[in-house]
């Protein structure tokens, strides 16, 4: 996740909260939110993941004029560009998201403008029961606010599998 800046906006929080089925007014209604302990609108706990929207090169978003590996009428045959490790949208490409961890120094509010610094973490391998060899890679993202203060530390782990995980 290499968003240069990640502006936290009320309408984005509203859309994100709706998408996870959370109708708590603390995410959408400024008047109701004012009366809560939060004292105003805050973002839901996993919202930092939506910083992908502000990464100009995010590999899991189709871009005008570039090949996209998702299908049109038929499969395109285009290959996914490989993404980073476990940070942003999880494994991405041929990979999957294995773990996600957040540490909240404070909760995000509309008007915050974050910067994200990504640090590579460990990589490791193990043999999976259902999907052959698994290669894990970790990345740590530090989100700082407009004052330079650390607000969220996120640690993501992505996994690449030898074959599709068929849990059905």
């Amino acid at each position: 996740m290499t968003a240069k800046t990640f502006p936290v906006e009320a309408s984005h929080i509203l859309m994100f909260a709706r998408s996870v089925g959370d109708e708590n007014p603390v995410y959408t209604d400024p008047e109701a939110a004012k009366k809560t302990e939060a004292g105003g609108i805050i973002a839901p706990p996993t919202f930092a993941q939506a910083s992908a929207q502000f990464d100009p090169d995010y590999f899991l978003r189709p871009k005008a004029g570039q090949a996209w590996f998702g299908s049109g009428k038929n499969p395109t045959g285009a290959q996914p560009r490989s993404g980073g490790g476990g940070g942003g949208g999880g494994g991405g490409g041929g990979g999957l998201h294995a773990e996600q961890h957040f540490e909240y120094h404070r909760h995000l509010r509309p008007g915050d403008v974050l910067t994200a610094e990504v640090k590579p973490g460990k990589t490791w391998e193990r043999e999976g029961r259902r999907s052959g060899k698994l290669v894990f890679s970790e990345s740590i993202t530090e989100y700082r606010d407009q004052k330079g203060e650390l607000v969220i530390t996120a640690r993501g782990v992505g996994v690449r599998t030898e074959r599709p995980v068929d849990a059905r």
Binding site: F16, A50, S51, A52, Q53, L60, P62, G70
Partner: peptide
């Protein structure tokens, strides 16, 4: 759409 993760 909300998260920006459009993995097909």
């Amino acid at each position: 759409g909300a998260s920006g993760d459009y993995n097909p």
